[in-house]
Design a protein around this nucleic acid. Structure first.
Lengths: 107, 107
DNA sequence: AATATATGCAACTAATTGGTTGCGCAAAAT
DNA sequence: ATTTTGCGCAACCAATTAGTTGCATATATT
C-alpha cells in the first residue's frame, strides 16, 4: 500500500516509535513495552510506518525486528529544503533589526 | 487552539499552501484560486496552519494576508535533526561498501 | 505432544478529518 | 444607500483514524 510519509509522521506515537527504532531495531512487543498502548495498537502504527517504508521488517524465527530507514526519512528533510533559506534569512533580518535597535540607542 | 505542527503538515493541500505562501503572502481567495478546492475548504486549511503558527495573519481592510512563518517550520527541521546523522552515516557505509566492492574486484 | 509466546489480521467503535452548504458581518464599490 | 466582495463561522456529512477485542498461525519451550 502506498502512503504519504508526512501523514505517517502526523501521529506523535508513531514519531516516538521512529525515535526509538532509530536507536536500535526492536520487535513489536519490545516497542509496545515502551508505551502505554496495547501491542495491537503499536503493531498498527508499525504497519503504517512499514507501508511508507520508514521501517523495514526482518524476520528471525517467530520474531520480527523492525529497522528504521533513514533514507526514507530524508524525503521529509528534502521537502523542508525549500524553506530552509527563509529561516536562515530570518536570522539575517534579525541581525539587521538588532543593528538598527543598537544605532537608535546610541544615537 | 494548540496544534501539532506535523499533524498540520500531514495534508498535501496544506503543504502546497505553505509552499505557495512561502513565496509571497496572499489572501485566502488568492490561495483558493490556485487549487480546485472551494474558498471555505482552503480557509479551513489556513485556519489550521494559523493555529499552529505556521502562518500569521495580517489584516488590510477587508482583506487578510497570510504570511508564512519560517521560524515555526524550523521546528520540524529540528525534530529531524536526531536522524540526520543516520542518513549521512548511511552514505559513509555506502562508501565503505563501494570501497570493499572495488578491492574485491582488484584483488 | 501440549503449552506458551510472538505476531498479524479482521471486525467493531468513538473520535477526528476534509469537504460541503448556508449564513452573517464588515469593508469596498457603485 | 444599495450592492458587491472578502472573509470567518457553524452545521452537517462521508471517509478516515486510532484504538479495542477476539481470533488464527507459526515458532519456541516444556
Amino acid at each position: 500500500m502506498r502512503r504519504d510519509i508526512f501523514q505517517a509522521l502526523a501521529d506523535p506515537t508513531r514519531r516516538a516509535i521512529l525515535t526509538l527504532l532509530a536507536l536500535q531495531p526492536l520487535t513489536p512487543n519490545a516497542v509496545a513495552a515502551h508505551f502505554n498502548s496495547s501491542r495491537q495498537a503499536v503493531s498498527k502504527h508499525i504497519k503504517i510506518l512499514t507501508e511508507c517504508q520508514l521501517l523495514n521488517a526482518r524476520q528471525d524465527g517467530r520474531e520480527i525486528f523492525y529497522y528504521f530507514n533513514a533514507t526514507k526519512m530524508k524525503e521529509a528533510d528534502d521537502w523542508l529544503q525549500q524553506f530552509r533559506a527563509l529561516w536562515e534569512g530570518r536570522f539575517e533580518n534579525l541581525d539587521q533589526i538588532l543593528a538598527n535597535n543598537k544605532s537608535k540607542k546610541t544615537s
